[in-house]
Design a protein around this nucleic acid. Structure first.
Length: 442
RNA sequence: CGGAGUGUGGCUCAGUCUGGUAGAGCACCGCGUUCGGGACGCGGGGGUCGCAGGUUCGAAUCCUGCCACUCCGACCA
């Protein structure tokens, strides 16, 4: 993505916290000019927030592709008749936003896409030779929550990555589930999060096998109980063999106790987990994986021929990641009193260059030189070239949380020096511009 | 869906009880002094007080209805 000069950007930061914001991430997203609420649970993503959303989306995309999933894009609006095939049109209830078009056709704004992907699958896939198949998209969803809250963490409109796997039999379906499980471990870790898979109830999606991926944070919606050794397990490397047997990885991550309060079994917990390893915390759900077999393929007649020529319903799973919720979850997990602290991988810009005296020829020249150099190496600098006062620039830069701050002013330049600050630690060093660029580039 | 609140300029809020020319701080515009962690002075612009109806000589303020948003709880891939 491109670099930016703040004088040309749109970054409406707020000094005061809007009164509707209760939790940290919501407050910081509003103050940092990332979002603006347009209705209850519905937000406009302003440029800074939009960039973070795109960064997260890209990490999700890369890990899904690596795990063998194939991207497509389904519409937000769906026909009611499709949902009548699975029986969920009546079952889903008031959370579904129902719409009637000018021809009086009943439609809905999709809360999820099992029906539609099953329809797409059955139209084209007839043979086991085309399996396994995993199709995913990253698309806006709408669920008419009774009580939206916590900003983008529980909005009504939200961006979700949803993947759907199709296999010939249950064993192959479990292998598809395992691939997504491993992909999820990797993608959350790449965003700087410790996401713990926990055994979960399946809810309206159905099926009997499901895990939620939970980020530990004080403001989490649900209480969780876990064996804290799970937090130290190694994340599968980027050369993980998705065509091989992943069950050892899954076993390592699922044999230690971890459960949300809804499914918590105190007896088992106390039996299986030594007292020193027990940990109670709160968590934010950022993803969930399901294997539900033929729950949709049978009623919707999505069948494939096996090697024996007999038709059988596809074995399916679905896999969701709350992309927009992750923006809030990452902030909940990474901030301080001054503002957001973005992990490098999802930061909207890599380096904030602060020109302490915009208009001063020497400062301007040094900043432009740094801006050009950082742009060339792909560090995506944001140059504060406005004529605000230094204090305001420092505060705003801390608030928006870019990983590095390159501070360039007349006092330092007189000695041939600039200041480099690491946002996460607050560490500062005074050094030459060239040396600073070296440090930033690692 | 039960309960409790709040709607006054972009933001935070006062004014409503007790009706009488719509306010403050921040932000914004101009000028000047400033300038390394949210400066100061002077001047200026911006609000059908959520909407509709009613009472009244007169309504941000009283009455009725509606709408929106927030919080607590229940619910929640």
């Amino acid at each position: 993505m491109s670099p930016m000069r703040l004088s040309r950007f749109f970054l409406p930061v707020l000094k005061q916290t809007p009164s509707e914001a209760q939790i940290t991430s919501h407050r910081l997203m509003l103050r940092a000019g990332m979002i603006r609420q347009e209705a209850a649970g519905i937000y406009a993503w302003l440029p800074l927030g939009h960039r973070v959303l795109r960064k997260i989306e890209q990490i999700v995309r890369e890990e899904m592709d690596r795990a063998g999933a194939v991207e497509l894009l389904m519409p937000t609006l769906q026909l009611a008749d499709l949902w009548r095939e699975s029986g969920r049109y009546d079952a889903y209830g008031a959370e579904m936003l129902r719409i009637t078009d000018r021809h009086e056709r009943e439609m809905l704004y999709g809360p999820t896409n099992e029906e539609m992907i099953t329809e797409i699958f059955r139209a084209s896939v007839k043979s086991y030779k085309q399996l396994p198949l995993n199709l995913y998209h990253i698309q806006w969803k709408f669920r008419d929550e009774q009580r939206p809250r916590f900003g983008v963490m529980r909005g009504r409109e939200f961006l979700m990555k949803d993947a759907y796997s199709f296999d010939l039999d249950e064993a192959a379906g479990r292998a598809s589930y395992d691939r997504m499980f491993v992909a999820y471990l990797r993608l959350f870790a790449r965003m700087g999060l410790k996401a713990v898979p926990m055994k979960a109830e399946t809810g309206p999606i159905g099926g009997e096998l499901s895990h939620e991926f939970i980020v530990l944070a004080q403001t989490g919606e649900s209480a969780v109980f876990l064996d804290k050794r799970i937090l130290d397990l190694p994340i599968p490397a980027d050369d993980v063999d998705y065509r091989g047997d992943l069950t050892p990885v899954i076993d390592a991550w699922t044999h230690l106790y971890a459960a949300t309060e809804d499914v918590h079994d105190a007896t088992r917990y106390e039996r299986d987990t030594a007292e020193v390893d027990r940990m109670t915390a709160r968590g934010i759900e950022v993803g969930q994986v399901f294997f539900f077999g033929d729950k949709y393929s049978t009623p919707m007649k999505a069948t494939v021929s096996g090697p024996d020529g007999a038709e059988r319903p596809a074995q399916m799973g679905s896999y969701g990641v709350g992309v927009s919720r992750l923006v809030g979850a990452i902030i909940e997990a990474s901030h301080d009193d001054a503002g957001i602290i973005w992990p490098d991988t999802v930061a909207p810009y890599g380096v904030g260059i602060i020109n302490l005296r915009a208009g001063d020829a020497t400062c301007d020249a040094a900043c432009e030189s740094a801006y050009a150099a950082l742009t060339t190496v792909g560090k995506e600098p944001l140059l504060d070239d406005t004529d605000e006062r230094p204090g305001g620039k420092f505060a705003a830069m801390d608030l928006i949380g870019l990983p590095w701050q390159l501070i360039i002013g007349p006092r330092g330049l007189a000695e041939g020096m600039v200041e480099l600050k690491r946002r996460a630690t607050g560490d500062r060093q005074t050094l030459s511009l060239d040396a600073a660029l070296q440090v930033i580039c690692g």
